[in-house]
Design a protein around this nucleic acid. Structure first.
Length: 295
DNA sequence: AATATAGGCAACCGCCTGATT
DNA sequence: CAATCAGGCGGTTGCCTATAT
């Protein structure tokens, strides 16, 4: 009758994750990939509920996550998407690679809301806050934000899809501001089909990737990495990756001095990834190896 | 330097949906 | 078909840090 409970909640740990717990979870997922979250805590030796493990992985440990504040263009995209989708954070996050729904939700509540209010825009409705506009403008608002007299100020207050101020600002910087979901989908579809949820975390300062030739394709079944950074803060830490099925192909993209890496297996599922949003310096060691150094 | 306050964010809570038995 | 649960999602909480007094 039904499934078994995900975990008995007696004796389970709550609160912030320790580095040791993170390590256990990372090692487990690196070794086994993501399977049944219910089984993860027990198999990984964690006194956590499976749900907690999933959240920790999804929101913090995933290797493809971007760190730091949302960029200006990301913020604009979030605003645009929010005006279309509302508080459907997961849907919004799906359009921002490397960002989680939790992160976007937090950023919305702590930064974007304030910015919009400062601009006289209601973050809920994306329309002018009634107290900031006169009665006539309110009437116009109810008539679909149409600018009756062509007053630019009125138009500025209409966030359909972006405030004009923001649009102009974006245009000045060469950022497309008109919201077009198909455009976003198209841009996303350019990335090699990659399931971020299946990527184990690895944050090396330097990678040595076996490579059969200078082309971005490998057939090797092993990989190693080390952290002998060229900076003064060089780390001697050696990262040992557990045995797992290694990918068939290696994809490289980006500029000459900005590399992203992605490994794919036969099914096209991601198995291992360097953070594509960090900056790596690529150096050819020899005919068989590339070195990727984080700078 | 000590304390109070505000802001940011990781993590938890509870609900919903779809899958499983 | 009903009961039960896993996974996903959005809302909320509470801790930690930065800033102000």
């Amino acid at each position: 009758m039904g499934r078994q409970p995900c975990c008995d909640k007696v004796g389970l740990k709550k609160g912030p994750w320790t580095a040791e717990e993170d390590k256990k979870l990372i090692n487990f997922i690196l070794t086994h990939g993501q399977c049944c979250w219910r089984a993860v805590p027990k198999l990984a030796g964690l006194l956590r509920c499976g749900k907690s493990c999933r959240l920790r992985w999804t929101n913090y440990l995933r290797p493809d996550l971007k760190r730091g504040l949302l960029s200006e263009s990301e913020e604009k995209l979030v605003i645009e998407l929010h005006s279309q989708l509302g508080n459907r954070w997961s849907k919004i996050a799906a359009h921002l690679p490397g960002r989680t729904d939790n992160e976007i939700k937090n950023h919305w509540n702590t930064h974007i809301k304030k910015k919009l209010r400062k601009m006289g825009i209601d973050p809920l409705t994306h329309k002018p806050i009634p107290s900031t506009v006169d009665h006539q403008q309110q009437q116009q608002q109810q008539q679909g934000c149409a600018s009756v007299d062509g007053n630019d100020k009125n138009e500025q207050l209409c966030l359909q899809p972006l405030p004009k101020m923001a649009q102009e600002e974006a245009e000045e910087k060469g950022i497309t501001s008109s919201f077009d979901p198909t455009e976003i989908d198209a841009s996303l579809s350019k990335s090699p089909g990659f399931c971020t949820d299946e990527v184990p975390v690895i944050e090396p300062h330097e990678f040595v990737v076996p490579c059969a030739s200078s082309t971005p394709s490998i057939s090797s079944t092993s990989i190693s990495s080390s952290c002998s950074s060229s900076s003064s803060e060089a780390k001697a830490e050696e990262i040992q990756l557990p045995c797992m099925e290694w990918p068939e192909s290696l994809y490289l993209w980006g500029l000459d001095d900005f590399m992203g890496l992605e490994f794919l297996n036969d099914d096209g599922d991601g198995k291992l990834s360097l953070d594509p949003f960090s900056q790596y310096q690529r150096t050819a060691l020899d005919q068989e190896s590339w070195k990727f150094e984080l700078f």
